[in-house]
Simulated assay, not measured.
Amino acid sequence: MKYAEEFRDPKAAKALLARIQDVVTEIGATKDKPVHIMEVCGGHTHAIFRYGLDKLTPEGLEFIHGPGCPVCVLPMSRVDECVELAEQEGVIFCTFGDAMRVPGTRKSLMQAKADGCDIRMVYSPLDALELARRNPDRQVVFFGLGFETTTPSTALSIQQAAREGLENFSVFCNHIVVPPPIKALLDDPHMVLDGFVGPGHVSMVIGIHPYDFIAQDYGKPIVVAGFEPLDLLQSVLMVLEQIRDGRAEVENQYARIVPEHGNPVSLAAIEDVYEMRPSFEWRGLGEIDSSGLRIREKYAAYDAEAKFGIGYGAGARVVKEPEGCACGAVMTGRMKPVQCPQFGLGCTPEMPLGALMVSSEGACAAYYQYGGARAAEPAE
């Protein structure tokens, strides 16, 4: 496959692995005292397991799986509110497929659809916009979900709805941003992190400078990475070389895609449509200041929170995790998926207990799909 096989060349991979081994040895990292590198993005987690990079890299290197899966960090209360919206008479509720099977306290969106709610899986908010045009007598609500990667498309859809005066289209905005949870993790005294592999798709929108605080304030290296095996191996090597040299910088391995200052058109749309919430709840991390986006007052007619009196606009509800669910601990890198007592037993892709087993970017789904490790043993 042209333009892909170049980044999957076994000979080049072996050379990078040899260099990684050399630098790990120079640092003095061992199995008992490894270097801890967090890959923030769930897409990177899946690539690591898909290509077996966790098994190929030396024992002195340990990957910590970060909170870079927007479906996974979605609190159960948000799912409950999605179901409540979908259950309202005359509503067509639109969502990306990943969110359909995430459990709420009562049911998932998939179960709500089976119960008769008009819930549509879409590939873009523009699909929801078209549904609003075709169904002027129905209220069409799009579930705005995701990091900075998906915020521009939702923003552009709201701008288009405003230009057309589509009064039956709105967005239930749960868009979140990446830098604040990284800061929350770095501020956690129990977290042991030596460096980061930064998200590629998010950085394509925002550029690399929003991560400057990681190097400047915390003295940790971060390398924005692509998603092919050679991308990840080179990025890990770049992080390790910074650690060896006593440097802490923001580097861009994915320069073929990620511009230094981001995408100006996307950033302009984001700035026009959204503003920061004072705080937002993240599954496993709790409330994080300035980590979520809300729709500006000028576009209030397209804000489902204001239109239906739901979500943070009506006072957000805090819902506890299901008993035995360790999504929060896995999300923050305190626990590997297989250390959860429910992994592969009470929680499987067919019958998920938590979001990490549902999402295509969830760490538990990666372990389960690619055989990262065996399921947890049943309790005695």
Score class of each variant (00 low, 15 high):
residue 5 E to N: 04
residue 7 F to N: 06
residue 7 F to E: 06
residue 8 R to K: 15
residue 8 R to A: 15
residue 8 R to P: 05
residue 12 A to N: 08
residue 12 A to M: 10
residue 14 K to F: 07
residue 18 A to S: 15
residue 20 I to F: 01
residue 33 K to D: 15
residue 34 P to C: 10
residue 43 G to D: 12
residue 48 I to R: 06
residue 48 I to F: 08
residue 49 F to T: 01
residue 55 K to D: 14
residue 58 P to M: 06
residue 72 C to Q: 01
residue 76 M to K: 09
residue 82 C to R: 08
residue 83 V to T: 08
residue 89 E to S: 14
residue 92 I to L: 09
residue 93 F to H: 01
residue 94 C to M: 05
residue 95 T to R: 03
residue 115 D to G: 13
residue 118 D to G: 06
residue 119 I to S: 01
residue 120 R to Q: 11
residue 121 M to R: 11
residue 122 V to S: 14
residue 122 V to W: 10
residue 133 R to E: 14
residue 136 P to R: 10
residue 138 R to E: 10
residue 143 F to V: 08
residue 145 L to T: 00
residue 151 T to I: 05
residue 158 I to C: 09
residue 159 Q to Y: 07
residue 159 Q to L: 15
residue 162 A to P: 07
residue 164 E to R: 10
residue 165 G to K: 04
residue 165 G to Q: 00
residue 173 C to A: 14
residue 176 I to C: 14
residue 177 V to H: 04
residue 183 K to G: 04
residue 192 V to H: 15
residue 197 V to T: 10
residue 197 V to K: 03
residue 203 S to A: 12
residue 209 H to S: 13
residue 211 Y to A: 09
residue 215 A to Q: 04
residue 218 Y to V: 06
residue 220 K to I: 10
residue 224 V to E: 01
residue 225 A to Y: 03
residue 225 A to P: 01
residue 229 P to M: 06
residue 232 L to A: 11
residue 238 M to D: 15
residue 248 A to R: 03
residue 250 V to G: 13
residue 256 R to K: 13
residue 258 V to S: 12
residue 258 V to Q: 12
residue 261 H to G: 11
residue 264 P to N: 12
residue 265 V to T: 14
residue 271 E to D: 14
residue 281 E to D: 12
residue 281 E to P: 09
residue 282 W to E: 01
residue 286 G to Q: 01
residue 302 Y to S: 10
residue 303 D to Q: 07
residue 312 Y to C: 05
residue 313 G to Y: 11
residue 318 V to Y: 13
residue 319 V to A: 14
residue 324 G to C: 02
residue 328 G to K: 00
residue 331 M to V: 04
residue 331 M to I: 12
residue 352 P to V: 00
residue 356 L to F: 08
residue 362 G to V: 02
residue 368 Y to F: 14
residue 369 Q to G: 10
residue 370 Y to P: 03
residue 372 G to D: 03
residue 378 P to N: 10
residue 379 A to M: 11
